[in-house]
């Protein structure tokens, strides 16, 4: 137990972050974009936990709790915006947002 190099956990965090970034770039559905942002935030949290593991300190886990709070607030606002967007546009396609008109 405890022989996992912290670099491997950081590599997994980098991989998950890049996958989330690809999701944001490729997908056009607002719900999918929000899910990809969640993946990226979770990967950032994993990087903090891996750093906390490397030095055996609690600070990384405190940072993860802040990320968790921020993710909760962000996803609530994002989903509320998606609801309003769907009510106006009858679609979740982010490309149709150029027809918003103020």
């Amino acid at each position: 137990m405890g022989t996992i190099p912290a670099e491997h956990a950081l590599m997994l965090a980098a991989l998950l972050f890049v996958l989330g970034a690809v999701g944001v770039l490729v997908r056009r559905d607002i719900i999918f974009i929000l899910m990809s942002i969640e993946i990226m935030l979770n990967a950032a949290g994993l990087a903090f936990i891996a750093s906390g593991y490397k030095w055996g300190q609690a600070d990384g886990q405190v940072m993860f709790m802040f990320i968790l709070t921020m993710a909760g607030a962000e996803v609530a606002v994002g989903l509320a915006l998606a609801l309003q967007f769907y009510r106006k546009q009858k679609t979740l396609d982010a490309d149709s947002a150029n027809k918003m008109r103020g």
Binding site: M1, G2, T3, I4, P5, A6, E7, H8, L10, M11, A14, L15, V18, L19, A21, V22, L25, G52, Y53, K54, G56, Q57, A58, Q61
Partner: peptide, 25 residues
Amino acid sequence: SLILISELIYALTSAGPQAATLRVV
């Protein structure tokens, strides 16, 4: 993204893996 992830993995492996000691927080 493949370019980015290979850069990140290169940066993380160039130092060589160091086994960390587990301390449960």
